[in-house]
Design a protein around this nucleic acid. Structure first.
Length: 570
RNA sequence: CGGGGUAUAGCGCAGUCUGGUAGCGCGUCUGCUUUGGGAGCAGAAUGUCGGAGGUUCGAAUCCUUCUACCCCGACCA
């Protein structure tokens, strides 16, 4: 491609509404432009990257034995009513009516459509297992789209759905997809980890997320320092702690005027947060005999909402009680709450429960209790559960090493769906005995457009993007200097350009009549991995100049060896 | 959905408090010079000051209302 014929729309200034680096650089390098909140156009340069990611995904999915299909983005309400998700999915599902007032949605995912399609096509166990995928635009009406294409409303996703006669077959394909994802992210050139994950609203039994590691990631991942254990922090188990080394002491009530946060109370009383507990009051579900439920974690820990939602009668999603509700049932306000004497169900985190003496709110505004002992002071039955987030230094749940925590961007997610959708939608085949059985299903997603942003989050410097070669919009850029007044420069650059094209290299010939600084700045901002400079000065000495995007210095190479040198680099 | 903020040229912003001819930088266009790190000089174009209503002799500026967008939280593959 010749830059003089190509839309290179770089910006010197950073658009003010771009928060994260990938969003800023995608705008500045001219990859995308915003149309509305969470809706982006892909410009030529950006689309080249997107297509390269798609190509790798497609090649590896095909290699795994999956078959590509393409399903409609618009889906009839009836299918979603059949699976029960028309009601459950909530406002994130964009619902529309056609001219006949029939209800549809813009697909945020395609379990219903594929299950409907395949319950009609798959009749026999002999057709199984089968895995179908598509690369398609999805729409989720995110409450708060942000970070550019990282969390857009409309985005491109590769989604795959597998069908099986039994769970053993599902397990096999699940492992194949696990391996395939590993190949895909490795080929793209990202630093990533597969981690155990919560299966969330899609449902199902087992699930792994593939995270691109980056400081700007929205998810926290817990790793073991000495084993392969890795899990989303939502899932990572906090093991029961070792027994408290301090003995029980006498209970006392202390005045703590206007000290409501753990930090304030600790500073006021001169104690450590790990000798306090905090009591969170949440709303209970309709079936619950008590309208409120207390959740207790140690003062230096934070509540894990995913874990808490699994406690009996706690609502999902978790809903904190209002101050008015708390005052009505307990007689004190948040900041002075504690488990002693509570008349509502109490769930206590393992670490909090292990304390022999601790400080907590007295359920009387402006007072705390010190020296509290569970057995002596909270004789009512309390349930000891795991409801906190793990922290760095906790023992790894697999018993090997300690936990360390990093941030990740969720780029892929694989689920064992089991028979959730096939049961709801009656997707059956005949087995070897001629008996009709419900199929087992798996589903496997990759956020293709998100991968583009994630790659930038992981690969940039103060000059701009640094693409992994496999997904760079162009692999090589040839920049001519002063070409307008040098036939030799034009000819040498053109010759090299043609040779690289003939070798199938994605090469950008920067033949624009721009000053050198402009070309260098643009090529660096756009993140092209390899740059060759053809100049009159160099040609006089018989050299070209090469610089890799991550290199700090240029190197001169003999002009005659330019092609071979470059091919060796690729 | 709760809280906060913003809306003025393609982009980044000033002007709004205290009403009186709409500005700056970058970018864009033309010409000349220039060409190894985002050039210089000269000239030029570009705005329903987010929309609608109101107050006023006069509104970017004050009032009412609507919309869009952004941030924090909640929520979420």
């Amino acid at each position: 491609m010749r830059a003089s014929l190509y839309l290179i729309s770089t910006l010197k200034e950073t658009p003010s509404d771009a928060e994260v680096i990938s969003h800023q650089l995608m705008l500045r390098a001219g990859l995308i432009r915003k149309l509305a909140a969470g809706l982006y156009s892909w410009m030529p340069l950006g689309l080249r990257v997107l297509r390269k990611v798609e190509t790798i995904v497609r090649e590896e999915m095909n290699r795994s034995g999956a078959q590509e299909v393409l399903m409609p983005a618009v889906q009839p309400a009836e299918l979603w009513q059949e699976s029960g998700r028309w009601e459950k999915y909530g406002a994130e599902l964009l619902r529309v009516k056609d001219r006949h007032e029939r209800e549809f949605c813009i697909g945020p995912t395609h379990e219903e459509v594929i299950t409907d399609l395949m319950r009609n096509e798959l009749r026999s166990y002999k057709s199984l297992p089968a895995n179908f995928y598509q690369i398609q635009t999805k729409f989720r009406d995110e409450r708060r789209p942000r970070f550019g294409v990282m969390r857009a409303r409309e985005f491109i996703m590769k989604d795959a759905y597998s069908f099986h006669i039994d769970t053993a077959s599902l397990d096999e394909t699940y492992q194949v997809m696990h391996d395939t994802y590993h190949r895909i992210f490795t080929r793209i050139g990202l630093d990533f980890r597969a981690v155990q994950a919560d299966s969330g609203s899609i449902g199902g039994s087992s699930s792994h997320e593939f995270h691109v590691l980056a400081d700007s990631g929205e998810d926290l991942i817990a790793f073991s320092t000495s084993s392969a254990y890795a899990a989303n922090i939502e899932m990572a188990e906090a093991l029961p702690p070792v027994a408290d080394t301090l003995p029980a002491v006498e209970l006392s009530k202390v005045a703590t005027p206007n000290q409501t946060s753990i930090d304030e109370v600790c500073a006021f009383l001169g104690i450590e947060a790990n000798r306090t507990v905090k009591t969170l009051i949440v709303k209970a579900g309709k079936e619950s005999p008590s309208p409120l439920i207390a959740l207790v974690v140690r003062g230096d820990h934070t509540l894990n909402e995913i874990k808490a939602e699994k406690c009996l009668h706690v609502t999902s999603p978790l809903a904190m009680a209002t101050d008015a509700e708390i005052h009505q049932h307990i007689g004190a306000l948040p900041g002075s709450l504690g488990p002693v004497g509570l008349q509502i169900p109490v769930y206590v985190d393992r670490s909090a429960a292990a304390l022999n003496q601790f400080t907590c709110g007295a359920n009387e505004n402006g007072f705390h209790l010190s020296g509290v002992n569970w057995a002596r002071d909270c004789p009512r039955q309390v349930a000891v559960v795991d409801i906190r987030n793990v922290v760095e230094g906790d023992p790894s749940p697999d018993g090997q090493g300690q936990i360390q925590i990093k941030r990740g961007i969720e780029a892929g997610h694989i689920f064992k769906l089991g028979n959730k959708y096939s049961t709801a939608m009656n997707a059956r085949v005949l087995d070897a005995q001629g008996k009709s059985v419900i199929m087992e299903m798996g589903c496997y997603g990759i956020g293709v457009s998100r991968v583009v942003a994630a790659a930038i989050e992981q690969n940039y410097d103060d000059k701009g993007i640094i693409w992994p070669t496999a997904i760079a919009p162009f692999t090589v850029a040839i920049a001519t200097l002063n070409a307008h007044k040098s036939d030799a420069v034009r000819e040498a650059a053109e010759h090299l350009y043609q040779q690289l094209l003939a070798k199938g290299v994605d090469v950008l010939l920067d033949d624009r009549n721009e000053r050198p600084g402009v070309k260098f700045a643009d090529l660096e901002l756009m993140g092209i991995p390899h740059r060759l400079v053809v100049s009159e000065r160099g040609l006089t000495e018989g050299t070209l100049e090469y610089k890799g995007r991550r290199d700090t210095d240029n190197q001169n190479i003999p002009a005659a060896q330019g092609l071979a040198f470059l091919l060796d680099k690729l």
